[in-house]
Measured scan of single mutants.
Amino acid sequence: RLRTTITPEQLEILYQKYLLDSNPTRKMLDHIAHEVGLKKRVVQVWFQNTRARERK
């Protein structure tokens, strides 16, 4: 499986959303995924990875 490439514009939106809520609901994940044009699962994993990186 190929990795999904996230553009700088998408990253900017994801980080803005992360600052508002680091643990979004399913509904919010759907909305964010639609807004940035990525699959919900990709957005979900991005949030998981970002939370894990923050803990280190």
Rank of each mutant, 00 (worst) to 15 (best):
W46P: 01
G37F: 03
T5V: 08
R26H: 15
K17R: 13
W46T: 01
T25F: 03
D21M: 07
D21T: 04
R1K: 11
V36Q: 00
Y15D: 12
Q10D: 14
Q10M: 05
R51S: 11
L38P: 02
K56A: 12
I13R: 09
D30Q: 13
T25L: 03
A52H: 08
T7L: 07
T25R: 02
R26P: 15
N49P: 02
D30G: 10
E54D: 11
L11I: 07
R51C: 10
T50C: 10
F47P: 00
E54K: 02
R51F: 07
V45Y: 06
T7Q: 10
V42F: 04
T50N: 03
L29E: 08
W46S: 01
L20F: 09
E54V: 05
I32P: 00
G37A: 05
N49Y: 07
A52E: 14
Y18S: 03
T50A: 12
K40A: 13
K56E: 15
L20M: 12
I32L: 09
K56P: 07
Q16C: 12
V43H: 00
K40I: 12
L14T: 00
L14F: 00
I13E: 05
R41W: 12
I32W: 09
T25C: 08
D30A: 10
K27I: 10
I13C: 10
S22Q: 12
S22M: 07
D21E: 11
R3K: 14
D21V: 05
G37L: 01
Q48F: 01
I13P: 00
Y18N: 02
L14N: 00
N23K: 05
V45C: 06
R55V: 14
L14Q: 01
L20N: 06
R53G: 13
N49H: 05
T4I: 12
A33W: 02
G37W: 00
V45R: 03
E12K: 03
K17D: 02
K56L: 03
N23F: 13
L11D: 13
E54G: 06
K27G: 12
T25I: 04
R53E: 14
T25Q: 04
H34A: 09
K40T: 15
Q16V: 15
D30W: 04
R3D: 15
K27D: 14
V45A: 05
F47E: 02
H34M: 09
N49C: 04
V36H: 00
H34E: 13
S22D: 12
T5R: 04
D30P: 03
E9N: 07
T5C: 09
A52Q: 14
E35Y: 03
P8K: 05
L19K: 11
E54T: 05
Y18Q: 02
E35Q: 11
R41D: 15
L14K: 01
E12C: 09
E9D: 10
S22C: 08
R53Q: 10
A52C: 07
L11V: 11
N23A: 07
E54R: 02
I6F: 14
E12A: 10
R1D: 06
V42N: 11
R55K: 15
L11Y: 11
K17N: 14
R3P: 09
Y15T: 11
L19P: 03
W46A: 04
E54P: 05
L20Q: 13
Y18L: 03
K27N: 07
K17P: 00
R41C: 14
L38W: 02
R3Q: 15
G37T: 01
L11F: 05
D30R: 09
R53N: 13
T4M: 12
E12D: 09
V45F: 10
P24V: 02
P8A: 15
Q16N: 07
H34L: 07
L20G: 10
F47W: 09
K17C: 07
V42H: 06
V36Y: 01
Y15S: 13
V42E: 15
N23I: 05
L38Q: 02
T7I: 05
K17V: 04
T5W: 08
Q10P: 02
R3S: 15
V45D: 15
T5P: 13
K39V: 11
R26A: 15
T50W: 08
L2D: 15
A52K: 12
H34N: 10
R53S: 13
D21N: 04
Y15H: 08
R51N: 15
I6R: 01
Y15Q: 14
G37H: 05
V42Y: 11
R41I: 15
R1N: 15
I13T: 11
R26S: 15
M28C: 03
Q44D: 15
A52S: 11
A33P: 02
T50P: 03
Q10H: 05
P24G: 01
E35L: 08
T50R: 10
R51W: 09
L2A: 11
I6W: 07
K17H: 12
L2T: 14
E9T: 07
E35H: 06
E35I: 10
Q16P: 00
L38C: 06
Y15I: 13
R41H: 12
T50H: 09
R51K: 13
T4V: 09
R26G: 15
V36T: 12
V36M: 04
I6M: 12
S22H: 07
L14Y: 00
Q48D: 15
K27Q: 10
E35S: 07
V42T: 12
V36L: 08
T5M: 14
R55F: 11
Q48G: 08
P8F: 15
P24T: 00
L14R: 01
K39E: 15
Y15W: 12
H34G: 12
R26D: 15
N23D: 05
T5S: 07
P8G: 13
R55E: 14
Q16M: 14
K39S: 13
E9A: 09
H31Q: 13
K27W: 04
K27T: 12
Y18R: 01
T7K: 05
N49M: 06
W46D: 01
T4G: 11
Y18M: 05
Q16Y: 04
I13S: 08
V43R: 00
Q48L: 06
F47A: 00
Q10N: 05
V42R: 04
